[in-house]
Write a protein that binds this DNA or RNA. Structure first.
Length: 202
DNA sequence: TAAACATGCCTTACCAGTGT
DNA sequence: ACACTGGTAAGGCATGTTTA
């Protein structure tokens, strides 16, 4: 097949061709596309060069299609329809139709809190998706996202990375449990006492 | 002769390349 | 990053050509 010089190909030529086929008039086709008669005539001239065929012959006040134009019409018309409907119309995401993978990175705590509910929600709203959960922690979650190992991360993590988008899901209240005898502390616990005392974050 | 198409020339917009 | 420049293409104006 001969290589195509796409620089010389313009989608508007096909639109002009369709308008000419419909109106069989340069002037009316120009009106239909809201351009001047000369502009449409130029378009027809470029089409003729591109397709190496006169495409239309003037016969009185009407432009008669050539055999080549009749050949091209059933190709070009559905092509324009396809472009209008399948290419230029924005597609909306339908979770129920989606059958691809969804990879969620979860910290230990997030897995404990969210995993069962996530499973139920995905099974109901995106029953065909391939849901997988991946263990991450506060250290490696950035790498997991940037290396495309997960699509989203759930957990008590913070990021200043402008590439990563973050949304706060909820605020949780933490409590401090301590043994007054072994620590020698008493309630209420001051911040100073808390920070001075060895402790574990669970 | 009027209507419609074709064409030369011009303006404008866009893009790529180049220099600062 | 920005400005400048040259090439290219689209579209309009004016006018020539064609046809009934």
């Amino acid at each position: 097949m001969k290589p195509v010089n796409w620089r010389s190909v313009d989608l508007n030529f096909l639109v002009a061709f369709a308008a000419l086929m419909e109106t069989r008039s340069v002037t009316r086709a120009a009106e239909k596309l809201s351009i001047g008669q000369s502009a449409m005539s130029h378009n027809l001239s470029r089409l003729r060069t591109l397709l190496d065929d006169p495409l239309f012959h003037r016969q009185g006040n009407e432009m008669q299609q050539t055999a080549r134009a009749f050949e091209l019409e059933p190709v070009i018309t559905p092509l324009l329809d396809t472009i209008a409907t399948d290419v230029l119309t924005p597609v909306s995401f339908e979770p129920k139709q989606y059958s691809g993978p969804i990879r969620i990175g979860l910290t230990d705590y997030a897995e404990l809190v969210f995993a069962p509910a996530l499973f139920d929600v995905f099974r109901e709203q995106a029953p065909h998706c391939q849901l997988s959960c991946h263990p991450v922690d506060r250290v490696n979650y950035r790498e997991a996202l940037k290396n495309d190992q997960v699509d989203v991360v759930l957990g008590a993590v913070q990021t200043e990375d402008p590439v990563l988008l973050m949304e706060n899901l909820y605020t949780e209240r933490h409590v401090c449990l301590f043994d007054p005898h072994s620590t020698g502390l008493s309630a209420p616990l001051s911040l100073d006492d808390y920070t001075k005392t060895p402790h574990a974050l669970v």
